[in-house]
Design a protein around this nucleic acid. Structure first.
Length: 260
DNA sequence: ATGGTAGAAGGTCTA
């Protein structure tokens, strides 16, 4: 089964591009970030017509995540637990039941950007990542195949950015940010892209500004992290870089894995 | 040091 993550930067502004990618890549399950609309404005019919079940955790103007699956799912949770005052729509989770193989739990995340750092937005990012760690710990306790996928707004290593010197003070690359990401990984998750492509330069985001795409000034910030039970089933992983080169693209490319 | 682009809004804010 194929599982993908795609930060679409507005599902309605991007609908044609996104549907084109779905028709081409045919993911069984996908999590989307930055849909930038409330639930009622999500174009569910277009996905239902293609055989997807749809769960949306939307928000006006900012953020917003969705989970689409050709297989039935249950136990949908919207919103990251651990802070009742946090009203950002950045987390969605469900248990997916594929035909013929064991179920897979999928969580879709849109981790706060955190810039400018230091400051309140950076504090929010670090707190949010701590809460995510707690949730992941709980989910790993169930010992099922679990995929944590999304836009983490974290550049894990120097090789994941075109020029680490230019990103030294950025919230996506600060040592504290990478440490928080490592803490989550070190609970026992596997970075799928690095498992399949240990050395490759594989960016997933190119800024709209400063000709970043043309110069290949990219970052690897969209990730699929696997529980041991999911990692055992990993067959392949990749980035659909071509999506970023089309007309009116998202600034992110889709990232996908293939599981047994 | 600044501003460059994009999207939702119809204010600037976020990225």
């Amino acid at each position: 089964m194929k599982i993908a993550t795609y930060n679409v930067n507005s599902i309605n502004a991007r609908l044609e591009r996104v549907l084109e990618w779905f028709d081409d890549a045919k993911p069984d399950v996908a999590v989307l970030q930055e849909i930038k609309c409330v639930d009622e404005k999500f174009p569910a019919v277009e996905f239902e017509d293609r055989g997807y079940n749809v769960a949306v955790h939307g928000q006006k103007t900012y953020n917003g995540v969705a989970l689409l699956s050709k297989y039935p799912f249950e136990e949908v949770n919207k919103g990251l637990p651990g802070d009742d005052t946090d009203d950002h729509a950045r987390y969605i989770e469900a248990m997916v039941f594929p035909k013929g193989v064991k179920p897979v739990r999928i969580a879709g995340v849109y981790v706060p950007n955190g810039n400018p750092a230091p400051g309140p937005k950076y504090d929010y990012k670090l707190k949010w990542m701590k809460r995510l760690k707690r949730r992941v710990k709980e989910l790993l306790g169930f010992e099922d195949a679990f995929v944590l996928a999304g836009d983490f707004n974290v550049i894990p290593q120097a090789e994941d950015v075109y020029d680490p010197r230019e990103w030294g003070a950025d919230a996506l690359y600060l040592p504290q940010t990478r440490a928080a990401f490592r803490e989550i990984l070190n609970l026992g998750l596997t970075d799928a892209i690095r498992q399949i492509h240990p050395k490759a330069v594989l960016y997933t985001f190119w800024d709209y500004q400063r000709g970043a795409w043309e110069k290949d000034h990219g970052l690897r910030i969209d990730h699929l992290l696997l529980s041991p039970q999911a990692a055992d089933r990993l067959k392949d992983a990749g980035v659909d870089r071509a999506a970023r080169g089309k007309e009116k693209p998202s600034d992110h490319a889709p990232v996908w894995i293939e599981l047994k």
